[in-house]
Design a binder for these strands. Structure first.
Length: 274
DNA sequence: GAACAGGCAACTC
DNA sequence: GAGTTGCCTGTT
């Protein structure tokens, strides 16, 4: 692969790479001992690091793709100022500011969040990496080997039992079913990007092993519908303890999902309510 | 060794 | 429709 130059991605005011990669939305970015994040998205390897108040990226991929992936053409400051969720939410926003909602590949998000159910991040990452190293394509970058996320078609064609190497337990048949649905065209993820989020959610929940929470995560992180509001145990606890009893997340509007991510990040990293 | 985990589905009343 | 249970695996 040709040598690539370091390029400016954005300012640290626009994106905090640690918060963005550690807030639980993605599973394939990892920091080295110097704080540089290495990962692969849309088949394209990259490394990101901060110097002064600038975020740099090195990757063979084009900048347009990366700006889209990191959702950099949206002003999260302006969006966040529009939240009408009370003081607690405002505090979560200041705490988590710099998080970007990644626009991940829909199939990768679907698969990853199926794996995430009743599971911790360390284990999710392990399972996803085994999925990629066993069934994806190797890609060399900066002396390291990355693996692409295997396509739905590749996973759909695997013989029975091939997913045993993942050690993902009862989730394996859910992954196979999702792969077959996507590969056969029964589930058209790209069309769900354009449809409204409740239609997208309904289509996803028709698959086995996909309930409300996983569907909402896929809709938010993979289909880029920012109003989706996944409710897990942390969010449920925060809603119960810091919001009015009849609070409806839908009142947060078209970007409720961003608000959810600030609340989630605050709750998780401070252990609030635990 | 038993209980539990960022969840789902099938089952119960 | 609210509550209970099994499900794989890994960790405590």
């Amino acid at each position: 692969m040709a040598e690539t130059e370091a390029r400016v991605l954005c300012s640290t005011a626009e994106m905090d790479i640690v918060k963005t990669f550690e807030c639980g939305q993605c599973f394939r970015w990892n920091a080295d001992e110097e704080g540089t994040y290495w990962g692969i998205a849309m088949g394209c390897p990259a490394k990101l690091w901060v110097q002064g108040d600038t975020v740099y990226i090195k990757s063979p991929g084009d900048m347009e793709m990366w700006r889209e992936y990191f959702d950099l053409d949206r002003d999260y400051g302006e969006i966040s100022r529009g939240f009408d969720g009370g003081e607690y939410l405002s505090m979560c926003v200041s705490y988590g500011f710099g998080i970007r909602i990644l626009r991940q590949d829909p199939w990768e998000a679907l698969c990853s969040f199926i794996i995430s159910q009743c599971n911790n991040i360390t284990r999710i990452k392990g399972i996803v990496e085994r999925l990629c190293s066993n069934f994806g394509q190797p890609v060399e970058f900066e002396g390291r080997t990355f693996f692409t996320f295997p396509s739905a078609a590749q996973v759909a064609e695997l013989p029975a039992g091939a997913l045993d190497v993942l050690r993902c337990g009862y989730r394996a048949p859910y992954i196979s079913a999702a792969a077959i649905a996507v590969a056969s065209g029964a589930l058209d993820l790209n069309s769900l990007i354009k449809s409204d989020s409740s239609t997208a959610k309904r289509s996803l929940m028709a698959l086995p092993g996909i309930g409300e929470k996983v569907a909402n995560c896929v809709v938010l992180f993979g289909l880029n519908h920012m109003e989706a509001f996944p409710i897990d145990v942390w969010i449920r606890r925060a809603l119960k303890e810091h919001f009015p009893q009849d609070f409806d997340p839908a009142c947060l509007g078209d970007y409720a999902g961003l608000a959810q991510q600030y609340i989630f990040y605050y709750a998780r990293s401070t252990g609030d309510g635990k």
